[in-house]
Design a binder for these strands. Structure first.
Lengths: 214, 214, 214, 214
DNA sequence: AATGAATGAGCCTTCATTCAT
DNA sequence: GATGAATGAAGGCTCATTCAT
């Protein structure tokens, strides 16, 4: 399973070959079929295992006590999410594989979405509800969540591009602490502003909202 | 090449098959090798052509006159970027292919990064420079750019997941206008706040900056 | 297709290998998939072709003119059926393959039954209707047909056993003429007797019918 | 061995898998090789065992006393043969396996022919000798025997086809009693007629024999 | 004595590529 | 100039068999 995780993370489900997995594991080609039935089941097993690992290692509420403020909870959420996505060790495979699932979904994605992603989405929604003023349009809450997640996943998806941009090295993925701090600060600033505005014009689509340029 | 663009956008380089391309083009299986040498060269040709097309069709300064404000320029940038990436329109193939390249780079990515992505990155950097106070740390400018691009590309990369989240339909990719408006508003709010703060403590790493929670 | 017919006749659909077919045909392993799509389609094509050949070469009404008597038509039916089943040349493959289909049916059997076997069954039924007295129970007509076909197909199915029985050679499949004559004579005798009896006790299940022993 | 008999009867030697056998027996995959050496030896063992069982269970002289008439003996022969071949009963496996061996012989067939089929053939020959007039050409006796066996085995071999013929259900394999009765009656009628005729023209190939049509 | 794990040969199929025409 | 036919490498999978325990 270790070898499988590596190869799947590297090539994706479809392009990973059982042969490479087995070779890297020092096992026979038939080993996968013997132990897991087929390639897809191995993949499912790997995904389940990695999800578990990632959740254990980087819980979304790392270091929070029961009376943590919403800002603290968002900070922890972003940081642990980034860790799961960026860390180079074992659980990094999880991020890579998830990224691939998003671009080229397999049947396994359904289960992942239900068991793994949905809870995260719910958690983030709850945090944002506490951060935004009561009565905020749920659609707006959702969009804010997606803006936050987008900032994070960007580093999981686009690393190859960042490495190729000039000036050389300037776009290397920043160290995790710096990154977590930035995304948190950027997002909190936006949420504060949107919340402030929204509080005065609850629900309504536009009204006195400061006009967008153009 | 038209057929190739379609198929590559749909399946990515590796999973696209020469057969499907030729079939869709009503041509012989050997046509690709005859006209382009091999599959990779066809891909390169398609990418070059699409880059040219995309630049023409969705210029990042769409509808702006020479004395557009930075806010207007950012608004236009976000909107045209989203269009390139999301529209189902023929000419959107470029965006889809690029998104795939980011997750699963081929040799073509080097050229793409240099010729196509880099100018976009430079353009965004220039806009942000104008939006943020003079003297802002270039690293921060960069991070802000990545936060904006991340929010946009998220919808290109993660659509399959969004479709699978509950409540059913609530996470469907919003219509482009709504999305562009949100991302613009979210980002401008963040930039304003970060700029305001940064203006008072130029350069310095932290200082009197309002402490992050935790 | 020639090689395929040979190999399928020899080993049956499932146990025939594409490799052997291609090797025997001096072609590449991928040839089957190129020309026919897959093994099953090749098999279907072979079956269709052989059916056509067999029908053409040994028509069930060989040598009959329009006012042939029922006895003459049964004679011709049995003889041509045996020819199709026993002849060692091309069309013999047809018999072997059909025999295998019966023991281990594939999806192709449905089509064969409908297009090839059913018409033969109908033809035989018509002949028997003319041979048996009017009012004969259709179920009896059917059983008589099966008795006749059974006698014929026996030589297609059980050749391997006949060759192994003592006295050596006594059970070799007799020459076709001798066999056709015997089966015809045996069956006509039975039909005459059953018809005679049945004519006196139409329909009824037993009655004055000569009691079966035991 | 019980599980093996089941699986071999169902799928034939080649298509039966050791895995299915062991699974059905609740044993380990290696059990076959451990206890019997290899698949072929297991098959041989099963066949030997089944032959013994079948002889015991469906004796060809079932219910006959010593002074049974030849007609009674033929009736019993046909009936027990049909039972061995058709019954879904556990001990019918032998018949099913034999039917398969005839179409797709394995090395085991030699032994089977010698030990099991030959005695049956001899028994039938003896019955027919008593039924046909003295001096009947042994070749004719043989052909009559094959005609009878052919009618019986037909139902063992061609069931899949019968199920596919129109009118729906009309060709379903009839219940054993009805079938045994028909085959017996059909065959006795034929034997009587052939015997009557043959008695007047002993040996001779044709002569005054009523001309076959055509 | 018996087994779970592992093996390697072989199967059908797919695909980019080549080649004779 | 262009193509239909053909190729061989590779992929996932099945299966009888072997082997260490």
């Amino acid at each position: 399973m270790d070898a499988a995780a590596e190869v799947f993370a590297e090539h994706g489900f479809r392009n990973a070959t059982v042969r490479e997995i087995c070779q890297r594991a020092g096992a026979n080609v038939a080993a996968v079929n013997y132990h897991f039935g087929d390639k897809a089941s191995l993949y499912a097993a790997v995904l389940a295992e990695l999800s578990r690992l990632a959740q254990d290692r980087f819980p979304s509420d790392a270091g929070l006590d029961d009376n943590a403020t919403p800002r603290q909870r968002l900070t922890a959420f972003i940081r642990s999410f980034l860790q799961r996505v960026l860390s180079e060790d074992l659980s990094a495979r999880h991020g890579r594989i998830m990224a691939r699932e998003m671009v080229e979904p397999t049947e396994a994605l359904d289960r992942m979405a239900r068991d793994y992603i949905q809870p995260q989405a719910d958690l983030l929604r709850d945090i944002l509800r506490d951060l935004l003023p009561p009565g905020t349009d749920p659609a707006l809450t959702r969009l804010c969540g997606l803006s936050i997640v987008g900032q994070i996943l960007f580093y999981a998806h686009c690393r190859p591009v960042l490495q190729r941009l000039q000036p050389e090295g300037a776009f290397a993925v920043p160290e995790l602490d710096r990154l977590a701090e930035h995304i948190t600060r950027f997002s909190l600033a936006a949420l504060d502003a949107l919340g402030r505005h929204n509080a005065t014009t609850p629900r309504g689509r536009s009204g006195t909202r400061p006009a967008l340029p153009r």
